[in-house]
Amino acid sequence: MNKRSFTAPYIIWIIGGTLIPLAMMFYYGLTDESGTWTLQNILAIFEPGNLRALWKSLLYSAACTVVCLLLSYPIALILRNVKRAKGVIVFIFLLPMWVNFLLRTMAWQVLLEKGGVINGILSWIGLPKARLINTPGAIIMGMVYDFLPFMLLPINNVLSKVPNSLTEAAYDLGASKAQVITKVLLPLSVPGIVSGITMVFVPALTTFVISNMLGGGKILLIGNIIEQEFTVGDNWNLGAGLSIVMMIFILVSMAFIAKFDKKGEGLA
């Protein structure tokens, strides 16, 4: 047994789990039903329905990313200064991730439903019922809830690695608290922010489960379109073609990470 044979499981995994599916996706995406080569499945992204879904996906996942960032950064700053029980606080943030995310999304259904928990409380204190579920807000809410840890962890990783001596030196030289944050900590945490953004943006962009469960079938994101082409539409070629388009977005995000996070700090 030489060392190289240890890589066999990995290579089999990569071939079976990544290369073959990718090749099939490209084959389906670039052919039509009769098997002739065509670009029409890729260009189908420009059809009004698909374009609208793509636009909505970009919009919602951008909103989700911004909210995640605004929530995570202050928490990460606080965590940096926590001396004791830091592990416990991070643990509390990770705890929900141990529950399957479908279940967590279903829990939101129960909360947001017209006869659900939140509306129950509203009417109990005498307020009118609100239309919560089946709205863009519900979907973004679900996305934020599911993807928040993916933003918090990389930022927390990077920020907690910044040596205290740096901030102390800045204070010594007369910097205010705000200046320390904007001039020292923020620039040093860019790799973490960038990888957080991609790790939230990419899965939010392609989700179809959250929009299905919290959108009541009324809001179609690009992930739903692809899913429907494979299931309801029975058009695997179009589904694969649109998936290729989504891959382009993912590749752009990865290039983005590579540019800002050269040492891979944020991914640790």
Binding site: P48, G49, N50, R52, A53, K56, G217, K218, L220, N224, I225, Q228, V232, G233, D234, N235
Partner: peptide, 15 residues
């Protein structure tokens, strides 16, 4: 015709 139906339906759902 299936495809036509499907396109219309997609338009409705994506609207």
């Amino acid at each position: 015709v299936d495809r036509m139906y499907n396109n219309f339906w997609k338009e409705l759902k994506a609207y």
